[in-house]
Design a protein around this nucleic acid. Structure first.
Length: 490
DNA sequence: TGAAATGTTGGGGCG
DNA sequence: ACGCCCCAACATTTC
C-alpha cells in the first residue's frame, strides 16, 4: 500500500533548503524527490520581476542548484506555463503530488488555485505549506471585522501571540534515490544562461556583483554577521546612511533564501541569551519591529490587492500630481541637484540597493518636491532594487506619499539638506556616489550651490526645484484636497 | 521614521 | 542699579 511515486517539490520564492516546509514534508514522506523551478517568460503576471530582481534570481538559482545537487536531489529547471510544465513533469516521472510553499501575493495565490485545479484534473494533487510570513493574515484577522490598519496595535497584537514555529533544519538527504535519471538534461548553469533572465543594461551588472552574493549560504552568513556586529547597536546606527548599520537581509527575505521565521528566531534567541535590559535589547527589538513592518505590508496587500496601484486613502484620488517625464528622468538618473537624493538614486542604480532612510528621502522628494505620482517612483524602485517586494514597495510608497493607511502625514516633508547633514554628516555617502562633489568640504557638501564664487564650476546640476518653494507648492496641493472624511465623525 | 514658523525665556550688553 | 533690546536656546504650534 505504500506509495513510492516521487514527489515534485516546486521552488518559487523559497530558494533555500533550511526551514523549507514543503521540502521537509516531502523528505518525511520517504519518497523520491524531484525539485523543480519553473520559468515562464510568457506568464500573465501583473508585476513581472524587475531587472535587478532577475539578476538576483539568476544567481540565487545557481546557488540553489549547487546546494541541491550536493544534498542529493538535483534541481530541474523547466521553462513554460506552470500548470502544463508541472503536468508534463509529473507524467514523465510518475509523480502524483506537487509540494510547494505559499507565496504571499494575492494574484499569485489565485494562480496557484488555477494550477492546482488544472493538476487535479490530471490526477496530480498539490499540497501548500505555510509560506513567507510570521503570522497568517487570515488568522490574525480572527474576531475583527476589518483588517489591521494601524501598525502599532497590529505589531502589539503580533507580539502577544504565541511565537511563530521554530524553523526547520535542513532535512537529511532523501534515503531513496532521486527521480529517474532520464529527467536530467543540460546542466542548470547552462540552462540559466540560456534563459537570459538578466536583461542587458547600460553599465552592466558589475556593481551588483561587487556588492552582493546571492544564495542561502551567503544569506546565512549575512545574518550571522548582523547578529555579531550590527544588531546590538542597530537603533543608533540604522539611520546612518554612510555606515553599514542595517542588516541587508531584505533581498534574501524576498527570495526566501532565509525565511522570516529564521530571522525572527535568530534575533529573539539572542535577546533571551544575552539580555542586558538596555540599549542592546532595545536595538534588537527595533530590528524585530522592522520585520513587523514587512509583516504589516504583506498583510495589507493580502487584504487590499489594489495596494500597488491605487491610494488606500480615497482622499488622495484627487491629488494634483502629474506625470512629468523630465522631472522623473532627472530623479531616476540622480541629477536633481540635491546631493543626498542623487546619491541615493545612484546607489540603487549601481548596487541594486538603497538605504532605507534614503528611500524615504528620495521618495518624498519625488512625490512632494516634484509632485510626480508615487506610482511612477514605485515602478522605478520595483525595477532597480534587488529586494523589490510588491507588498513592501507599494506600502512604503503609500506611506511616504501620505495616502496609505497609517501613513506619514503629507505635511511631513523631508528637507534633503537637513537629512544629509544629520545622516551623512561627513558626506561619505555623497562622495562615494556623486564623485563630482567629492572635493567639496563637508560644510558645503549637501548644498553645493552655496560654494563661493571663484571656485571652479562643478559638473553638477543646480537644484531642480528650490526647496522652500517646492515645499509650499506641495502643501498647497495637499490643502486642495477635500478635508479628511470629517463627515464620517458627525 | 519632520521642518518651519511662532512663541517664550533668560542672560548679557549697553545707555 | 535699572530698563531696554537683542538674540540664543528651547518649547509649542502649524503645516
Amino acid at each position: 500500500m505504500s506509495d513510492k511515486t516521487p514527489i515534485i517539490v516546486w521552488f518559487r520564492r523559497d530558494l533555500r533548503l533550511s526551514d523549507h516546509p514543503a521540502l521537509s514534508a516531502a523528505v518525511e514522506a520517504g519518497r523520491p524527490l524531484i525539485p523543480v523551478y519553473i520559468h515562464d517568460p510568457d506568464a500573465d503576471d501583473p508585476w513581472p520581476t524587475g531587472a535587478a530582481g532577475r539578476w538576483w534570481l539568476r544567481h540565487s538559482l545557481a546557488h540553489l542548484a549547487d546546494a541541491l545537487a550536493a544534498w542529493g536531489a538535483p534541481l530541474l529547471l523547466r521553462q513554460g506555463p506552470e500548470a502544463a510544465t508541472l503536468a508534463d513533469l509529473a507524467a514523465s516521472c510518475g509523480a502524483r503530488a506537487v509540494f510547494c510553499n505559499q507565496v504571499a501575493e494575492p494574484w499569485r495565490q489565485a494562480q496557484d488555485i488555477a494550477v492546482s485545479e488544472s493538476l487535479a484534473r490530471r490526477g496530480v494533487g498539490m499540497a501548500f505549506f505555510s509560506g513567507s510570513v510570521l503570522f497568517d493574515p487570515e488568522r490574525l484577522m480572527a474576531g475583527r471585522e476589518r483588517p489591521w490598519a494601524i501598525f502599532a496595535p497590529f505589531w502589539r497584537r503580533c507580539l502577544s501571540l504565541p511565537p511563530p514555529n521554530r524553523p526547520l533544519p535542513v532535512p537529511s538527504a532523501p534515503a531513496t534515490p532521486p527521480g529517474p535519471a532520464a529527467l536530467s538534461g543540460p546542466s542548470p548553469h547552462a540552462l540559466l544562461d540560456a534563459w537570459r533572465l538578466v536583461p542587458e543594461r547600460p553599465g552592466g551588472w558589475d556593481g551588483l556583483a561587487a556588492a552582493w552574493t546571492p544564495g542561502e549560504a551567503a544569506a546565512q552568513a549575512r545574518l550571522s554577521a548582523f547578529l555579531d556586529d550590527t544588531a546590538s547597536d542597530y537603533q543608533q546606527q540604522r539611520d546612518r546612511v554612510d555606515r553599514p548599520g542595517t542588516s541587508c537581509l531584505s533581498p534574501s527575505l524576498h527570495w526566501g533564501e532565509l525565511s522570516v521565521r529564521q530571522v525572527w528566531h535568530a534575533v529573539s534567541d539572542s535577546l533571551e541569551r544575552e539580555p542586558d535590559g538596555g540599549a542592546d535589547d532595545a536595538s534588537r527589538r527595533a530590528f524585530l519591529r522592522q520585520l513587523g513592518w514587512r509583516e504589516f505590508s504583506t498583510h495589507l496587500l493580502h487584504h487590499a490587492p489594489e495596494l500597488p496601484s491605487r491610494p488606500l486613502n480615497p482622499r488622495f484620488g484627487a491629488f494634483p500630481s502629474q506625470s512629468d517625464p523630465n522631472a522623473l528622468a532627472a530623479w531616476q538618473q540622480g541629477r536633481t541637484g540635491y546631493p543626498l537624493v542623487d546619491a541615493a538614486m545612484r546607489q540603487m542604480r549601481e548596487t541594486g540597493w538603497m538605504h532605507n532612510r534614503l528611500r524615504m528621502v528620495a521618495a518624498s522628494f519625488l512625490v512632494k518636491h516634484l509632485l510626480v505620482p508615487w506610482q511612477d517612483g514605485a515602478a522605478w524602485f520595483w525595477d532597480g532594487l534587488v529586494d523589490a517586494d510588491l507588498a513592501n514597495n507599494s506600502a512604503s510608497w503609500q506611506w511616504v506619499a501620505g495616502c496609505g493607511t497609517d501613513a506619514a502625514p503629507f505635511f511631513r516633508i523631508f528637507n534633503p539638506v537637513l537629512q544629509g547633514r544629520r545622516f551623512d554628516p561627513e558626506g561619505a555617502l555623497v562622495r562615494r556616489f556623486v564623485p563630482e562633489l567629492a572635493s567639496l568640504a563637508a560644510a558645503h557638501l549637501h548644498e553645493p550651490w552655496r560654494v563661493g564664487r571663484g571656485t571652479p564650476p562643478l559638473q553638477y546640476p543646480p537644484p531642480l526645484v528650490d526647496h522652500s518653494w517646492a515645499r509650499q507648492r506641495a502643501l498647497a496641493a495637499f490643502r486642495s484636497l477635500r478635508p479628511e472624511a470629517e463627515s464620517e465623525s458627525l
